[in-house]
């Protein structure tokens, strides 16, 4: 056991490995993010004994492997070429509520080996289960972990190793936001997407625009203005609403008397579209537009946007869609 399925030669699908000590939360993370398991139910997950693969089919197909924590993948007896040869990123999960020194040591060993043998693999460290911690303790822990890994790396002479750190919990959106950032690094078209979103924002006075993979709620790009988790939370909650209502009222109706004519003549409404208007200001606040089977564009509007600008937005979103279909011809 413990062996990855034979990696197919360059299929272009990014591969991610989830690693970390036992009970650090790897299976919980994959079940919550990719199987929509309610976080409270992860208590009943059994210890993972086999490598488990989660596939995500979206604009960008990728695979996540959940590696059981009890195997040392980088010792001599293990064929690390087969394991890591085709991996794009390693996500290392540390339980921040537990004693983490052992975990850091294991992480440091892994990072050093990866640096020497597979220097292009991104190492993404999830400082996990931060929900239970006080704010002070949380940031101290986070800093401490970063420091320890950094020290080890620079002692070994690796100063620019591709290692990043995130604070995560399955009980809020932080895990989705972290995953989004990890995935974005693996999308070669990211700079193009970002500049498209930037120009959309400046043309329509949009404060923030996200391109979301609707099913996984991972965003694959956003404009380059600063992000904060608050905006992500609004967008992901909004997707839930639209998906939910679309399920409720999108059921297969028997042919209806009276309305069929309408449905035939009305066109341009193939893509779903949605809008939230905020109270008081009366301005449009959130705007969602289906881009294709997988993707939705969500815009957080600026203070001064108003309904007249809807036409402008529709036009520019049309342009954006057009450009996107050139970047991802398959979708």
């Amino acid at each position: 056991t413990g062996r990855l399925p034979n990696s197919r030669a360059q299929d272009g699908k990014p591969r991610l490995m989830l690693m970390g000590q036992k009970r650090s939360g790897k299976s919980s993370i994959s079940s919550v993010v990719f199987h929509k398991l309610p976080p409270s139910e992860t208590l009943y997950l059994e210890t993972t004994t086999h490598i488990t693969k989660y596939s995500v089919h979206s604009i960008l197909d990728f695979a996540i492997y959940d590696l059981p924590g009890h195997i040392n993948y980088l010792d001599d007896a293990y064929d690390d070429e087969a394991t890591f040869g085709e991996v794009d990123a390693v996500i290392w999960v540390i339980d921040a509520q537990d004693e983490y020194l052992d975990a850091i040591n294991a992480l440091n060993r892994t990072v050093l080996i990866l640096q020497s043998r597979f220097p292009t693999i991104n190492v993404e460290v999830f400082v996990h289960k931060v929900d239970g911690l006080s704010e002070d303790y949380k940031s101290d822990t986070f800093r401490d972990i970063i420091q320890r890994v950094q020290d080890e790396l620079s002692d070994a002479g690796y100063d620019n190793a591709p290692v990043s750190f995130y604070q995560t919990s399955i009980f809020d959106d932080s895990i989705f936001e972290a995953f989004s950032k990890v995935i974005q690094k693996l999308i070669p078209q990211l700079p193009t997407l970002e500049s498209l979103l930037n120009s959309l924002c400046s043309n329509c006075r949009i404060e923030k625009a996200y391109l979301f993979d609707v099913l996984s709620k991972i965003y694959i790009a956003t404009d380059t203005s600063p992000t904060d988790i608050g905006s992500y939370e609004i967008c992901s909650g909004y997707i839930d609403v639209v998906v939910d209502i679309s399920e409720i009222y999108g059921w297969d109706r028997p042919t209806e008397n009276g309305h069929t004519a309408d449905e035939d003549t009305e066109d341009g409404m193939q893509d779903g579209e949605s809008l939230i208007t905020m109270e008081k200001k009366g301005n449009n606040y959130l705007y969602l537009r289906e881009i294709n089977k997988y993707l939705a564009l969500i815009c957080l509007m600026g203070e001064d946007s108003n309904s007249e600008k809807k036409v402008l937005i529709d036009y520019n979103v049309g342009v954006f869609k057009e450009a996107l279909s050139k970047i991802f011809p398959g979708a």
């Binding site: 800093r143 404060e207 992000t227 999108g250 905020m278 109270e279 957080l300 203070e303």
Partner: peptide
């Protein structure tokens, strides 16, 4: 440089947490 000031909140004026209207338009409803 972690303790940078947090980015300006995206647009929601305090006290107006309620949305006034939500619209969804699709080909089916």
């Amino acid at each position: 440089t972690a303790l940078r000031t947090h980015s300006k909140h995206t647009g929601i004026p305090a006290g107006s947490a309620n949305f006034a209207e939500l619209q969804i338009k699709t080909g089916r409803f």
